[in-house]
Nucleic acid binder design. Structure first.
Length: 453
RNA sequence: GGCCCUAUCGUCUAUCGGCUAGGACACAGCCUUCUCAAGGCUGGAAGCAGGGUUCAAUUCCCUGUAGGGUCACCA
């Protein structure tokens, strides 16, 4: 009965443009996309905008924007149900002729602002069973459904009718959707049989849950894809995380590019139970992606160069210099893009562009705060560095200075050095900083520190 | 409430009858160059309950319990 194996796989993503695309919808789109692409099939986009009251062009725009951002590409042009009224009408008429849909007079309904007459499906009251791709056999008794409404009028079809007609006409072979649709399936199968459409294979994906285990929704905070985009998440990271929510490869692999997901995805490794959305893990995955993202350092460079904070600096336009800061210091410190603004505003890279302001009391390391000793050590550090020739890499600096640091006690040398260079309690290690700002600047800052003591 | 679905660390998950129950996030401790970040190592942390089936159940079956979904002239 359910034999579509010889046909090309065609799936669909059918958002209704009544709100911003949320992450649950994005994941449904993603699973459909991965499933289809893995098997060399097609995925089509269909806007279910039969509800004229709630559907808005702005939401269509948002959905489209998000899907493009996420990198989910569709085959062919999007379908709008609102433009297919005539088609549904034809099916409706045929169903009426066949006696499977009838016009029902609704007594007293007009007082509630509803129609006095609607089109109802004549329910055969049978048991419907299908073999769900993720849950196995599922059975419903359709008697509970009664003669449900399929259209408000011939020109105003409702969801179930439109879905079934479209899935049929579009040759949809697999319907992968959220678990919240599971109870819609029996009535859609009923309509399918009435119009002699083949039954697609169904797979009901578990829901994304809020921390309280209820269906994730607006009241739980950020759910719109655009919010995550605007907060600074990378699309590949969101894709990676969403894929792992409810699916796993059966290995320990967690870092995935979209291409790798397509290669590994399979429905039989999709989870049956819902999964709580955990932003901590999303952040971690985002960080991993950011570290690997080569284009990101370019963006960091541009952002640093454009920052008004460093406009006065004579170093801000030295691209090579800024590039080193971006790749050696900044990039590994970011979890999401918006961290960069915070890092800059927090003054965490000021010392690369501006002379640090030193608090004399902080130059000494707490273990040996004797100022005479500190002065002597800074002078010795200065002498050692001054004597260095040629290369000035992090490793050279470390090799040259560590023996002295070991001798004096690491903190007694490294802290004053690092503080003199940065004026910060927290910063990257002194060798990294020194190697970037260069020998001349290091010596200058050391002498300033000595004078400040 | 009816119907349907689900049930392993706090969270995401591995296990397709043999388990000292593995990994990741988060957390704690230690190490790595003083501080921060990154990295490394170590640690705590789970099979909802009761019955079966079986030589053997986290894994299969039943019941209970809990959680969720859905019950529109929305989609």
């Amino acid at each position: 009965m359910q034999r579509n194996n010889d046909k090309t796989i065609i799936v669909r993503f059918p958002p209704s443009p009544t709100g911003l695309l949320h992450i649950g919808g994005a994941r449904t789109a993603l699973f459909n996309y991965l499933f289809a692409k893995h098997l060399g099939g097609k995925i089509v986009l269909r806007y279910e905008d039969t509800d004229k009251e709630r559907s808005k062009p702005d939401y269509v725009k948002n959905i489209e924007e998000c899907l493009v951002w996420l990198g989910i590409k569709f085959d062919g042009e999007p379908v709008y149900q609102s433009k297919r009224t005539e088609i549904y009408k034809k099916y409706l008429k045929d169903l009426v002729v066949a006696g499977q849909v009838y016009e029902s007079k609704e007594e007293g309904k007009e007082v509630e602002g509803k129609r006095s007459s609607v089109l109802r499906f004549k329910n055969p009251n049978i048991r419907i069973t299908w073999n769900d791709l993720v849950r196995g056999e599922v059975t419903f008794d359709t008697t509970d459904l009664g003669d449900f409404v399929v259209a408000k009028s011939f020109d105003e079809p409702l969801y179930h009718l439109a879905v079934v007609v479209d899935d049929f006409e579009m040759g949809i072979t697999h319907v992968l959707r959220g678990e919240d649709h599971i109870s819609n399936t029996p009535r859609q199968i009923l309509i399918q049989r009435a119009i002699n459409a083949p039954q697609p294979l169904y797979g009901h994906i578990p829901l994304i849950l809020a921390p309280d285990r209820s269906k994730l929704s607006k009241r739980h905070g950020a759910v719109a894809v655009t919010e995550y985009r605007d907060r600074g998440y990378l699309p590949e990271a969101l894709i990676n995380y969403l894929a792992l929510l409810g699916w796993n490869p059966g290995t320990d692999k967690e870092m995935y590019t979209p291409e790798e997901l397509i290669a590994d995805f399979s429905l039989d490794r999709v989870q049956k139970g819902g999964a709580i959305f955990n932003e901590e893990k999303l952040r971690w995955i985002n960080k991993q992606h950011m570290k690997r993202d080569e284009g990101l350092s370019l963006w960091i460079v541009e952002t640093l160069m454009a920052s008004p904070r460093f406009a006065q600096s004579d170093k801000i336009n030295a691209e090579k210099y800024v590039k080193r800061i971006a790749t050696e210091v900044v990039q590994e410190r970011l979890e999401i893009r918006s961290d960069l603004g915070k890092l800059i505003e927090g003054g965490e890279v000021d010392y690369f562009f501006l002379e640090p302001k030193l608090e004399p009391a902080k130059i000494a390391w707490k273990q040996d705060a004797d100022l005479a000793h500190v002065r002597l050590r800074l002078q010795e550090i200065s002498r050692i560095i001054g004597a260095m020739n040629g290369a000035f890499s992090k490793d050279d600096l470390s090799a040259t200075l560590m023996p002295y640091a070991e001798k004096e006690g690491k903190g007694n040398v490294l802290w004053p050095l690092r503080y003199s260079l940065t004026g910060k309690d927290k910063s990257p290690d002194p060798f990294t900083v020194a190697s970037i700002i260069g020998k001349e600047e290091v010596l200058l800052r050391l002498s300033c520190a000595i004078l400040a003591l």
